[in-house]
Amino acid sequence: DEVEIEDFQYDEDSETYFYPCPCGDNFSITKEDLENGEDVATCPSCSLIIKVIYD
C-alpha cells in the first residue's frame, strides 16, 4: 500500500513518523530515513510494509 506522509503521526522527540498497521502495531520511518531517500515504512510486529508518499 501507499500512504501520504500527511497521514502519519509525527513524534518530535524521536523524529519518527508512525502510521497504524492492521495488526495493531505501527509502521514507522524516521525523518533521517526520509532525508536519505528511504520511502518504505515497516511494521516491527508483522511482515507488512507500506510505501511513503511525500514531496
Score class of each variant (00 low, 15 high):
D1S: 15
D1K: 15
D1L: 15
E2G: 05
E2W: 15
V3M: 13
V3Q: 12
V3N: 01
V3P: 01
E4N: 09
E4G: 10
E4A: 07
E4S: 07
E4V: 07
E4L: 04
I5Y: 07
E6A: 11
E6W: 01
E6L: 07
E6M: 03
E6V: 06
D7Y: 10
D7F: 03
D7W: 14
D7E: 13
D7M: 14
F8G: 01
F8Y: 03
F8A: 01
Q9C: 04
Q9W: 01
Y10C: 14
Y10G: 00
Y10W: 10
Y10N: 03
D11G: 09
D11I: 07
D11K: 15
D13G: 14
D13I: 13
D13R: 12
D13E: 12
S14G: 08
S14Y: 05
S14L: 13
S14H: 15
S14M: 10
S14P: 06
E15K: 13
E15G: 11
E15M: 06
E15Q: 15
T16C: 04
T16H: 13
T16I: 06
T16P: 00
Y17F: 07
Y17L: 02
F18S: 09
F18H: 12
Y19W: 03
Y19V: 09
Y19G: 04
Y19K: 11
P20E: 10
P20G: 05
P20K: 12
P20M: 03
C21D: 02
P22H: 04
P22L: 09
P22F: 03
P22V: 10
P22D: 12
P22T: 10
C23H: 02
C23M: 02
C23A: 07
C23E: 05
C23S: 04
C23L: 01
G24H: 15
D25L: 09
D25N: 07
N26D: 09
N26W: 04
N26S: 13
N26Y: 04
S28G: 08
I29H: 09
I29L: 08
I29Q: 04
I29A: 12
K31I: 02
K31G: 04
K31N: 07
K31Y: 05
E32I: 02
E32N: 01
D33R: 13
D33M: 14
L34K: 12
E35K: 13
E35G: 10
E35C: 02
N36W: 08
N36A: 14
N36Y: 03
N36S: 15
N36P: 07
N36C: 15
N36M: 10
N36L: 10
N36E: 14
G37M: 08
G37K: 14
E38R: 08
E38T: 09
E38N: 02
D39V: 08
D39G: 12
V40S: 13
V40W: 14
V40N: 02
V40C: 11
V40T: 04
A41V: 11
A41Q: 09
A41R: 06
A41P: 07
T42N: 08
T42H: 11
T42M: 02
C43Q: 00
C43E: 00
C43P: 00
P44N: 06
P44Q: 13
P44A: 07
S45D: 03
S45I: 06
S45K: 04
S45F: 03
S45L: 03
C46Y: 00
C46F: 00
S47P: 08
S47M: 06
S47C: 14
S47W: 03
S47H: 12
L48P: 04
L48A: 10
L48F: 04
L48Q: 11
I49T: 08
I49Q: 04
I49C: 05
V52E: 00
V52W: 01
V52Q: 01
I53L: 09
I53W: 02
D55K: 01
D55L: 02
D55V: 05
D55R: 07
